[in-house]
Amino acid sequence: MYRILKKRRLNPTVTMMDIYAPLVAKKARAGQFIILRADSDGERIPLTVAGYDRDAGWVKIIFQLVGATTMSLDRKEEGEYISDFVGPLGCPTRTEGIKNVCIVGGGVGCAIALPVAQEFHKLGAMVHTVVGFRSKDLLILEEEFKACSDKLTVMTDDGSYGRKGVVTEPLNEAFESGERYDEVIAIGPLVMMKYVVQTAKPYGIPVTVSMNPIMIDGTGMCGGCRLTVGGKTKFACVDGPDFNGYEVDFDEAVARSSMYAEFEKREREAACNLFKGVK
């Protein structure tokens, strides 16, 4: 059992928790993920490491309430326990030789982008962070990003905060004004990552994307997380989750992500009914 040390709602649908898991905290690095089960009959879900404290022994997770599992996880409070927490899994984000980086985060993907930005900042790289949200009330982690970015651009779809528009606009402007990042790292919805790749392509700037497909064991056993990268089958859990954005077959990844859409909808409705009227 793994104790919830701290819990904070970042916005109405996104929650942050610090989980006491000293072995995982000791090893975790930016870009890696964990798998948890909220309860002993729950499903296994992968969540990217959003931060850690090796001395205090906790790992930070940030999750969006998208389905039954994240809803029951969100009902747990500080001092309560989650059933299982395993990691760190996957390969850390590559940082060697990168001195000037643009980090693009979309929605809850910003939870993953934050430790990556912090890592580059710590290593002394120039960090330009572009984060995008649908609207102001969904904005998360602005202060944290400010602290680790040389430049921060906040975008909202509806213009309720920061600039109105999508993340590829400031990225494209930077390229047009002659900016040549060593690398762009995009973390967010599949469609956003696909368009970040298209934006960077004319300038030949390398793009790393962080993939978050359906997964069960997270150790390479099930193959459910497979992607086509550079024409080859890769497993996000052991080969990734970071991949060369130019090689990822995004359309296939988008299709595969909806494999259980019907089931998830039913589960979500059942969970909503269950929690309705319960505080």
Partner: peptide
Amino acid sequence: SLKGVYSANE
């Protein structure tokens, strides 16, 4: 990679 293709392990 179509939906509905599993490894036996999965």
